[in-house]
Design a protein around this nucleic acid. Sequence first.
DNA 1: TTTTGTTTGTAACATTTGATACAAAAATAC
DNA 2: GTATTTTTGTATCAAATGTTACAAACAAAA
Lengths: 224, 224
Amino acid sequence: MIQTEILCQSPIFRGISPDDLRELFSRILYQVKTYQKNELITIGGEICDRLLIIQQGSVKAEMTDYSGKVIKIEDLAAPWPLATAFLFGKENRFPVTVSATSEVEMVSIPKPEFVKLLQMNSLILNNYLNTISSRAQFLSQKLKFLSFKTIRQKIAHFLLEKAGDRLQTVEIMQTQGQLAEMFGVTRPSLARALSEMSQEGLIKIDRRSIKIQDKNRMNQLLKN
Amino acid sequence: MIQTEILCQSPIFRGISPDDLRELFSRILYQVKTYQKNELITIGGEICDRLLIIQQGSVKAEMTDYSGKVIKIEDLAAPWPLATAFLFGKENRFPVTVSATSEVEMVSIPKPEFVKLLQMNSLILNNYLNTISSRAQFLSQKLKFLSFKTIRQKIAHFLLEKAGDRLQTVEIMQTQGQLAEMFGVTRPSLARALSEMSQEGLIKIDRRSIKIQDKNRMNQLLKN
DNA sequence: TTTTGTTTGTAACATTTGATACAAAAATAC
DNA sequence: GTATTTTTGTATCAAATGTTACAAACAAAA
């Protein structure tokens, strides 16, 4: 049985009343499946031709590496949808193996039926488009960040982004350790780069606030 | 005037007959705007609340860096859509400044009207979902590749991916130089890493074919 | 205040990679 | 077959970053 009070909390059905959602579901085909703890739900590599939404319980996603060993990727709980990014596009396969970590109820909507839902209700359509677009935008940002090779470049990008057109001084909310992790470098390396940039007059560091002293030279760092 | 013979070549309208497309357009609001050479079409940072499709001519996309200098990003021509990844999601702003490089006709569909199109025609809906999903999948792959830090890791990932479960020997189609560029490293560095891995018995290199001799140790390289 | 734990600055050394150069090997052209 | 170009293997040195370690500064708790 579907529980629309839970499902309407899901990112895809957000903003829809439980009653409306029940009405919508009555017009499509779907299944509600129950899985016991530790039971397999999807296998990595399997074709992804249906949308799965956790209605009750929690699952874990794992990936198999090339030698066959298993790495845990993430934990998900109701009312989250699974693999929204793999229903469409060229790579229609589950990237991960999903199994139940408690007793689980899973709503399974075949792709053609989900397309009907998208066409019947513009809120669902917008929610879904927003979900996958935001993901693409997030990945794109992350990729841009990774494209800067040296630590100085990463620092410059981070500071200029935070400062925008106007500000000269940026207040950092994270510790150096957290920043270093974001940048994918070690903490002492980040500290060294910061102190060198400070010595060279590019920035001025006072605790957690950093003043950009030479915007032009900072920009030149990003040229390559 | 819209030219549906051209527009139906666009990734978003692919598979739809010119006549059907004309009928669909008759049911929504849209504009066809003409731009002279060098005229501005969108400005980076501007809100992206409409879908733009090049119907005639070509444009260039440029980005402004933090110091105000302009970097060319890409050239686009008819019948390509602009910024499909920024119509929805959290970041609804054009990332680039677009200007005409020849006389240009641009079809402009306001976002709510485009949503109508998506709901009226499931082919358009599928095309659009496939476009942005594929983009997210592509970015995700690229990100995964970049997450490997050492050259050895990149080599291991590349070879294990190519080999799959079965094969032991991988035939490389590119030159070392091309591979090095893909990996974002210099050619001598790649050659050195390969020869070291060969000395350590991980792989055996014979011209353009590389045999994976120790899959387990290769996998361990990817653990961190 | 004193104590304790966290954050920061910095140093010494090891490792990885880039830059450059050059010769051997292979592929291609003549 | 010879000449020319491309590709590959390798060496040397420099630059960037990681690793480890430790002390000073700071913040929170007792």
